[in-house]
């Protein structure tokens, strides 16, 4: 039988990998993919825990997680598209409009 902890380890691995993708890759699409991986890690946690306690709540939570992911991804993708359209790049490093510039002074 698969102990809960194993499932959780796998979930944690997935989550960590997703996090690594986000931290290391510079391409917006890769970052989004990393995000997906992280979400799935979380979903795995929820399901494993739900099964462990034989409870439907884990699955319900995952369903909602899926919904949220879908909504998030739809908006994120359109934003990526907009960014690409406006700035002609999908490199995260090039998107530094929020960078504070001390020389400009306070607004």
């Amino acid at each position: 039988m698969i102990p809960l902890s194993h499932s959780l380890i796998i979930a944690a691995l997935l989550f960590t990998l997703g996090l690594l993708i986000i931290m290391l890759r510079r391409e917006l699409l890769f970052i989004l993919m990393g995000l997906e991986v992280m979400f799935n890690g979380a979903a795995l946690t929820a399901i494993a825990a739900g099964q462990y306690w034989t409870n439907a709540d884990g699955q319900v939570l995952t369903i909602f997680l899926t919904v949220v992911t879908a909504a998030e991804l739809a908006i994120a993708l359109i934003l990526v598209w907009l960014v690409f359209e406006r700035l002609n790049t999908t490199r995260a490093d090039n998107l530094k409009l929020l960078k504070d510039n001390i020389d400009r002074g306070p607004p």
Partner: peptide
Amino acid sequence: GHAQLSTAQNGLLNRYAL
């Protein structure tokens, strides 16, 4: 203080994630 701290605000997504 702002000048010192604002280096953190570099606008790089990866750094923020970091």
